[in-house]
Simulated scan of single mutants.
Amino acid sequence: MIRVTLLLSTVACFLQPFRASATGQAAERLIVGCDTMSLFALPLVKADSAVLVRLEKRLKEIDAPWSTACWRAYIGVWRLDKGRLWLERVETTEGDPVFTGAELFPKSAEGSRARADWFSGEIRYGAGKPVYYQHDGFKRNLEREWVAMLSKGRVKRGTKAYRNRRYESGVEMVDNVSRVAAAFDSLHVGKSPDLLSLYVVFAADSTGRVVRIDRARLLSEKGSPVVSDPADPLLQAALRAFRSVSRWDAWWVGGAWKEQAYFIPLRRGGAVWKLQRKRP
């Protein structure tokens, strides 16, 4: 669960999007044809518990190294061949052997690999340069990605292919905050709390302009909601200001503009919010 402490006097707290407490994790590897790609899924976690106990026991026996970038302490090497997912092998994070697919799943073995017929669900895999990164699990995207739905180890329906891209069309965060706060103040919306901020979830496009607002609310000094009704004039004024003057970097990911979330301080001590710079 995401926890955010709101302090209007601390700029950084308002300038961060929501972040989970987890850490970015090393991807699995997926071989497709002659290409080895990053696999942003963990099919092994859906295996029978007895298999997972064997894997955990072996990892402890060989004192497999782990880090915050790979809590599971292993990397699965997979292959997608003719619509079927195979486990080739399991390695340590340093590339040392742990199990072949056949050793871990003897009943599903063909040669040294094993059919991943225990796995049903979605897999996402990709190649190319990073486009988007969030320091949390597999919340990142590469230039080229594919998403497939599997049922008992077989691709259930057509694989979707995506070309992802980042557009650096925004301005500095503090500039966005100052713009929105000033624009909100200029609307003369009447009486509002002395300490007020806008929480907004939105998407921007390649021009940096806001193209979609998914949810929004006004918050007090301690983060409690002041206004959440979208029809409220105060919230509508804050969103008009936000749309009209803010400009953001944007990500085209998975065939859509990627959602972003920010806290924007609007008022402090009864006046338009301004960055308080410390004297040298």
Rank of each mutant, 00 (worst) to 15 (best):
V171I: 15
G126Y: 01
W86Q: 09
R113N: 03
Y167H: 08
R163Y: 01
E145C: 01
A102F: 04
E145N: 01
I123P: 10
T92L: 12
H135W: 14
M173H: 12
W86S: 08
E168A: 12
Y132M: 09
A148Q: 13
G111N: 12
I123D: 14
G121V: 09
T159L: 00
M149N: 05
A127C: 04
K129V: 14
G121T: 03
W146N: 11
R79A: 05
G83H: 06
V174I: 12
G101A: 05
G128V: 03
R165I: 02
K129F: 15
V155A: 06
T159P: 02
V155G: 04
A114S: 07
A161V: 13
R124T: 15
P130F: 07
V131G: 10
E172L: 01
E110C: 05
E143A: 14
F119S: 06
N164R: 12
R154W: 09
P106A: 08
E143I: 02
G121I: 00
K160E: 15
R166Q: 13
E122C: 10
E143L: 12
W118P: 00
E145R: 10
R163F: 12
G83W: 09
V90N: 07
E88T: 08
A114Y: 01
V171E: 09
A102V: 02
Y162K: 04
G158K: 13
A127H: 11
L85C: 01
Y167G: 01
S151T: 08
Q134A: 12
P130N: 13
R115V: 09
E145G: 01
K107P: 12
V177G: 11
A102P: 07
N141T: 12
P106E: 05
S151V: 09
E122T: 13
E168F: 06
G126R: 04
S151L: 12
R163H: 08
D175E: 14
Y162T: 09
D96N: 08
A116L: 07
K156C: 15
D117Q: 07
G137L: 11
K152W: 09
R144Y: 08
R89Q: 15
G101W: 03
R79M: 00
G95P: 02
L150Q: 06
W118S: 07
T100C: 04
V131I: 15
E94F: 00
D96E: 02
A114L: 00
E91D: 14
A114N: 01
N141C: 13
S108D: 11
L150Y: 06
L104V: 03
E172D: 07
Y125W: 14
Y162C: 13
N164Y: 05
E103A: 06
